[in-house]
């Protein structure tokens, strides 16, 4: 198997700092309550990997604000990707764990960046295999545009216009040591044409 082409990314601009990230997530939490008229039958599903941490924060904010512990889980979409047969190396699988039966529930999918929409497409397929929710909503921290599929988010933290050669990196302190969103630009290597 061939190694993926070496790529170097240089930080170009900071989009959200720690406080911004928290403020934006709090607003999303409020919108989730508004849109669903409460939190009854609402469950949060974070998409591996950073969506899982963002979902955990939303859950904590909802617990503080509404005194409700929203059931939450994590969803790995690797095995549902549509590019699995064209990648040079198999992507690593992460855990999926869903809090009980999702049938009849209002599932809020949580991801860090909405880009082509392909991850969300895969997540919808994965959800269909796990049950039949009453509805599925999508919450993302950043919408960077460039959709390749007819998919839109219900809750958007921040819309960030980008060019395709840029990359939006959401950093969470649990994995990356800091809470920050940055735009990076490619400085070396070639276009991979592959986006998770």
């Amino acid at each position: 198997m061939t190694a993926q082409t070496e790529q170097k990314w240089a930080e170009k601009a900071s989009v959200l700092g720690k406080e911004d990230m928290e403020r934006v997530l709090r607003r999303i939490a409020v919108e989730i309550v508004e849109r669903n008229k409460g939190l009854e039958r609402v469950i949060l599903l974070g998409i591996q990997r950073r969506g899982v941490y963002l979902a955990a924060r939303l859950r904590e904010m909802l617990r503080e604000a509404e005194k409700v512990k929203v059931p939450s889980g994590e969803l790995d979409i690797t095995l549902y990707r549509d590019d699995i047969s064209v990648l040079s190396d198999q992507p690593v699988v992460h855990s999926t764990s869903v809090p009980g039966d999702i049938t009849g529930k209002k599932v809020v999918l949580v991801d860090d960046v909405l880009f082509t929409g392909r991850t969300v497409r895969a997540a919808l397929d994965a959800i269909t295999d796990l049950g039949r929710p009453e509805r599925v909503q999508l919450a993302v921290l950043v919408d960077r545009g460039h959709r390749e599929l007819p998919i839109a988010a219900d809750y958007v933290g921040k819309t960030v216009p980008t060019s395709r050669s840029e990359n939006v990196e959401v950093r969470v302190k649990e994995l990356d040591g800091e809470d920050r969103v940055v735009i990076c630009e490619r400085t070396g290597g070639t276009e991979s044409g592959v986006e998770a």
């Binding site: 690797t78 549902y80 990707r81 047969s85 699988v93 999926t96 764990s97 295999d129 796990l130």
Partner: peptide
Amino acid sequence: QTEYMEELLNRPIKKVPALR
């Protein structure tokens, strides 16, 4: 990786499209 594969066996629909 095997651990995550085992989780699939607990699902109501034991099928994913990975090796279509």
